[in-house]
C-alpha cells in the first residue's frame, strides 16, 4: 500500500479504475470497451496539450497561451480550408503545426531573450493570440458546410478499432516519452526545472531549453487547433476558452511539479484521462452541468493538496537520513 501511494502513476490508474467501476454501477455500459474508447477519444486533445504543457512546466515555466494558440491556428486552417478547398489536408496540418510552433517560439523568445517571467509572457500572448483570431476572422464563424470532407472526416475515420484522432494522441504520447527520456533535450528540461543553477553549472543553456519547450508546446497547440476545429466542425474565436487551465490541471493531477523538474509522461496522460472520465461521467450519472465546473475545481485542489503532502513527506525522509549517523563519508 505504501508502495502504491509512492507511485503516483499506479495510484492514478487505480483511482481511475475505481471511478469507472463506480460510475458503471450508476450508468449501464459506462465501463464498456466502446464507451472507454469514446472517453479516450474525447480526451485526446487534452492529452496532447497536457504533454506540451508538461514539457514547459518541467523547465519551471508555464504556458497559459495554449488555448489561444489553438483558437488562432484553428481559425487560420479552417479559413484556409474554406477559401481554398484544393489545398491538401497534409499541407493544412503542416501549416497548423508551423503556425503553432511559431506562436510558441514567440513565447519562448520573450522568456529567453528578454527574461520576462513565463506567466506574464503567456498571459499577454494569450490575449494577443485570441485577439489575432478575432482580427483574422472579423468575428465570423467557419461552419461545417464550408469545410471540405477530408478536413472533417479524417480524424474520425476508424482505424484498427479506434478513430484516427485517438491514434494521433497515442503517437504524440510515444513521441513525448521518447523526447523526454531519450533525447538530451529532455534531460536538459528536467535539469533546468529541477535546479536551474546546477543546470547552468553543468553546461546547459536554460534559456534555449525553455525556448524549445515553448516551441514544442506551441506546435502541439497548433496541431490541436486543427483537431479541435475538425472534431467540433466549427471554428470561431471563443473555441477552447479556458482550456489552458485544464491542461495545467491535468499536469498537476498527474504529479508534475509546478516548481519544475518532476513528472512523467504517463502522469500527464493519466491526469488528463482522470479529468476526461469525470467530465464524461458527471452528465451520465445525472449531475447538473452547473455543478460540473465546481466539482472539477474541487478535484484539482485536492490533487494539489495531495501533491504538497507527498513533497513534504519526501522532505522528512531526507531529514531523518541526515540525522542518522553517517557510516562513512
Amino acid at each position: 500500500m505504501t508502495n502504491l501511494l509512492k507511485n503516483r502513476e499506479l495510484l492514478l490508474i487505480v483511482i481511475i479504475g475505481l471511478m469507472v467501476i463506480g460510475f458503471a454501477t450508476r450508468a449501464q455500459g459506462f465501463a464498456s470497451p466502446g464507451n472507454l474508447a469514446n472517453i479516450f477519444n474525447d480526451t485526446s486533445i487534452l492529452i496532447i496539450l497536457a504533454l506540451g504543457q508538461m514539457t514547459v512546466i518541467l523547465t519551471k515555466s508555464i504556458d497559459l497561451s495554449v488555448a489561444a494558440n489553438l483558437s488562432f491556428t484553428g481559425m487560420a486552417v479552417a479559413m484556409t480550408n474554406a477559401a481554398f478547398p484544393d489545398v491538401p489536408l497534409a499541407l493544412l496540418i503542416v501549416m497548423a503545426v508551423g503556425i503553432g510552433a511559431f506562436l510558441g517560439a514567440i513565447n519562448g523568445f520573450l522568456v529567453w531573450a528578454l527574461q520576462i517571467p513565463p506567466i506574464v509572457v503567456t498571459l499577454g500572448t494569450l490575449t494577443i493570440y485570441r485577439g489575432m483570431a478575432f482580427v483574422l476572422s472579423g468575428g465570423g464563424w467557419v461552419n461545417a458546410h464550408q469545410m471540405t470532407a477530408p478536413f472533417l472526416n479524417i480524424p474520425r475515420t476508424q482505424l484498427l478499432g479506434l478513430p484516427v484522432l485517438s491514434w494521433i494522441a497515442i503517437t504524440i504520447v510515444l513521441g513525448a516519452w521518447f523526447v523526454l527520456t531519450r533525447l538530451p533535450f529532455g534531460r536538459s528540461a528536467y535539469a533546468s526545472g529541477g535546479n536551474p543553477t546546477a543546470a547552468v553549472y553543468a553546461g546547459i543553456d536554460i534559456g534555449w531549453t525553455r525556448f524549445i519547450a515553448f516551441m514544442l508546446s506551441g506546435a502541439l497547440a497548433g496541431l490541436c487547433g486543427y483537431l479541435w476545429v475538425s472534431r467540433y466542425a466549427v471554428a470561431y474565436v471563443d473555441i477552447a476558452v479556458g482550456f489552458e487551465l485544464d491542461t495545467v490541471a491535468a499536469c498537476v493531477i498527474g504529479g508534475i511539479s509546478i516548481a519544475g523538474g518532476i513528472g512523467s509522461v504517463a502522469g500527464a496522460v493519466l491526469g488528463a484521462l482522470f479529468l476526461g472520465v469525470i467530465k464524461n461521467a458527471l452528465p451520465v450519472i445525472g449531475i447538473s452541468p452547473f455543478a460540473q465546473m465546481a466539482i472539477s475545481g474541487i478535484v484539482i485542489v485536492l490533487a494539489v493538496v495531495f501533491n504538497a503532502r507527498a513533497e513534504r513527506k519526501a522532505g522528512r525522509i531526507i531529514l531523518r537520513d541526515r540525522a542518522a549517523p553517517e557510516v562513512s563519508a
Partner: peptide, 9 residues
C-alpha cells in the same frame, strides 16, 4: 544544494 545538484533527479 543550490548550485550542484538537481535533487529530484
Amino acid at each position: 544544494g543550490r548550485h550542484g545538484l538537481a535533487l529530484p533527479m
